[in-house]
Design a binder for these strands. Structure first.
Lengths: 332, 332
DNA sequence: TTGAAAGCGCTACCAA
DNA sequence: TTGGTAGCGCTTTCAA
């Protein structure tokens, strides 16, 4: 079970066993085989805690996402994990459910585990979180939300551009009454999308009207937000959602009211998750390149030959993807 | 940074600091405050590796899923995590991508981390994996696949029942030509669903014909499998999928061929993931109660007052949920 | 109520 | 090529 037992059985010192197990330093082939055999017989499994404690460093990067139900975050995780693995790093995925308190707890755990770096893909990172992160001295990358500074990078999406494209697209189709459905509007990062929408809409303040509603970050959250909208009086012809995950529920809710997209109401999402292609009608959305973000994150987190990358900010321009859920506004 | 530094600053021994930090043993209130203050000033973060190493045990349960893209597994994880948290356990989610090799590696890591237990929700667990697990001496629960034995429980779904209900439903609607779309048919656990379908279909061997196709466990996998089917000659009027995740893609692919469900082809899924309600037409499926499975898993994994639960097998009967994607077979 | 000290299992350095 | 051994940071007796 322990290195020492293996050493005893093999008739060598623990130092030698360690060398064999880690393929480090010179070991005579015969000794090597003897040790391996002993380890196998004893079904030796190195204690990772002891190893990390003795070694000092770890090859583990922690990623925390707001909501693992939303495939958007899973996509980032997968790409990031693949990239990290190429450099010999393991990544563990944690989630915070949009709770600042949970986030703090998760970060604490990750720091306690002596993670080699942190990828923070959450909407609830405020100053206190950033402060806590800074004190941890760990390299950190924010994906959406947070700010760049020494040792901390930020990968952002230019929501202004994305939302502007959505609104222009819809405006061009004749839409004048909009609804924006968001989630966690109390959180700065989540609010960015709302603000981007508002700004884009205000460019047409002369003839555009809109309402903002809030729901959970889930299809059902989208449904519920839409219900609010439908009760609100303003009968929008276009519904812009903070993300695809919510938009998917909007489509369902519309249908249950006997309304159809895009004939009665146009619907747009954001993110371009895979599901957006499989709903009906296929969702018009804005592509947020998770793989590119993940690669950038990996680059910022993993020490390169040239030493550790300095904290910097990268802003990504998203692209409009027009599919079937948006169309000409109904006259009247 | 370390316990010792805190002790020095507070002018006490490390033993006392440990007591304070862990709220264990008697400590004079004034001392306690002094220590806490020192810890705060130093921004002390306990090293979890040292703690686990010294303490011997951990409150961490590892869960490994085949495919974290499939929301089915995420649902299990979330319910399980909630349940585990109530008992003071943390759970870490890992994935194996249906690779036996990756699974073995992940298990090794978890064992090396001295997990308190393992929840194995994979299709690729064969004898060698079970053997490895048995040797780890850890309490293990299989969710779908695997076998019960000393210290190992298995939570299974009676696929035979579920598939039979699907087939009977479809047969009753007049369908006689079927296709079954599955994934990883080389893996025993994944094959169970196929076998269940086959058995159900064979009950009507007199007048039912069917083909089996395989794709990835993803919507695109479903699409591709359907393409095979459409090329196969047998023009099925009903497509039964191994799970909803694949079925979702089938709906999309059908549409791209100008076919519509359920008018031209009926489609049924399995699992009842949330998305199945949001596709169009809403998917007829079989409910697999993830929350119940997760609770059973937690019960089997977490030591109760009555000592550690013995390995046992629980079989769950799934229920048919008829929605809009299935309908009467087209005459002809 | 507090402290000293013996580990937990492993790595890494220094000698041999 | 090998062994001895001093830690890594924490918990936990056992004494004081």
């Amino acid at each position: 079970m322990t290195l020492e037992e293996v050493a005893r059985l093999a008739g060598v010192s623990t130092a030698t066993v360690s060398r064999v197990i880690n393929n480090r330093g010179p070991v005579r082939e015969s000794t090597r085989r003897r040790v391996l055999e002993a380890a196998r017989r004893l079904r030796y499994q190195p204690n990772l805690h002891a190893r990390t404690l003795a070694g000092g460093k770890s090859r583990m990067i922690g990623m925390v996402a707001s909501n693992i139900d939303n495939p958007f975050f899973i996509d980032i995780f997968r790409s990031f994990e693949t990239e990290a693995a190429r450099h010999g790093y393991e990544v563990v995925l944690k989630h915070s459910d949009y709770s600042r308190k949970r986030l703090l707890g998760v970060i604490e755990t990750l720091v306690g585990q002596r993670a080699a770096g942190l990828l923070i893909a959450v909407a609830e990172a405020d100053e206190s979180v950033v402060e806590e992160l800074r004190e941890s001295k760990l390299p950190v990358v924010f994906c959406d939300g947070g700010w760049a500074s020494e040792r901390m990078s930020a990968i952002k999406v230019r929501y202004a551009t994305g939302m502007q494209r959505v609104v222009e697209h819809l405006y061009g189709l004749g839409h004048r009454r909009f609804a924006f459905l968001g989630h966690h509007l109390g959180l700065a990062a989540a609010r960015e999308r709302e603000r981007a929408f508002t700004e884009a809409a205000e460019l047409h303040s002369a003839d555009v009207r809109y309402v903002i509603e809030e729901g959970d970050d889930s299809p059902d959250g989208g449904r519920q937000a839409l219900q609010q909208v439908l009760r609100s009086g303003l009968a929008p012809t276009a519904v812009v959602c903070a993300n695809d995950f919510m938009a998917i529920g909007v489509l369902t809710e519309l249908r249950s009211h006997g309304l159809s997209a895009p004939d009665d109401v146009s619907v747009a999402g954001f993110d371009n998750i895979e599901f957006s292609r499989h709903v009906y009608p296929a969702l018009t959305t804005v592509s947020v390149p998770r793989d590119r973000m993940a690669r950038l994150a990996a680059f910022a987190l993993i020490p390169q030959e040239s030493g550790h990358p300095k904290g910097r900010e990268v802003v990504i321009d998203p692209e409009l993807i027009v599919r079937e859920s948006t169309g000409p506004a109904r006259p009247g």
